[in-house]
Simulated scan of single mutants.
Amino acid sequence: MMTHCLALMGNMSWLGWLMPLTVLALLGLGIAALLKYLFTSSKPMTGAQS
């Protein structure tokens, strides 16, 4: 399976290498943004501080 995938990527020239790397980068950025949102979300303020 891996050799078939690499052969297909080789036949597509630079686009075959760019697209998987782009998808992995976007996936990593999405996970990082989700983790940042989950761990740094501010607590709701009440009273005179809001």
Rank of each mutant, 00 (worst) to 15 (best):
M1W: 14
M2P: 12
M2R: 15
M2C: 13
T3E: 09
T3F: 02
T3M: 09
T3K: 07
H4G: 15
H4W: 15
C5F: 14
C5M: 15
C5E: 15
L6G: 02
L6I: 02
A7S: 12
A7I: 13
L8I: 12
L8T: 11
M9N: 00
G10P: 01
G10A: 06
G10R: 09
N11S: 14
N11T: 15
N11Q: 15
M12Y: 09
S13L: 07
S13N: 08
S13V: 02
W14F: 15
W14Q: 14
L15H: 01
L15T: 09
G16F: 00
W17V: 01
W17H: 10
L18H: 06
P20W: 01
L21F: 09
L21A: 08
L21I: 09
T22A: 08
T22C: 06
V23H: 01
L24A: 06
L24D: 04
A25L: 02
A25D: 02
L27Y: 12
L27R: 12
L27D: 05
G28T: 03
G28Y: 02
G28F: 05
G28Q: 04
L29K: 04
L29E: 06
G30L: 11
G30T: 05
I31N: 05
A32P: 07
A32Q: 13
A33D: 01
A33H: 00
A33W: 00
L34I: 03
L34F: 03
L34C: 02
L35Q: 02
L35E: 02
L35K: 06
L35M: 07
K36T: 13
Y37D: 14
Y37E: 13
Y37A: 12
Y37P: 05
L38R: 07
F39K: 07
T40D: 07
T40C: 08
S41H: 07
S42E: 08
S42F: 04
S42W: 01
K43Q: 12
P44K: 08
P44D: 06
P44V: 09
P44Y: 06
P44M: 12
P44F: 06
P44C: 09
T46H: 14
A48P: 03
Q49M: 06
Q49I: 04
S50M: 12
S50E: 13
S50V: 10
S50A: 11
S50K: 10
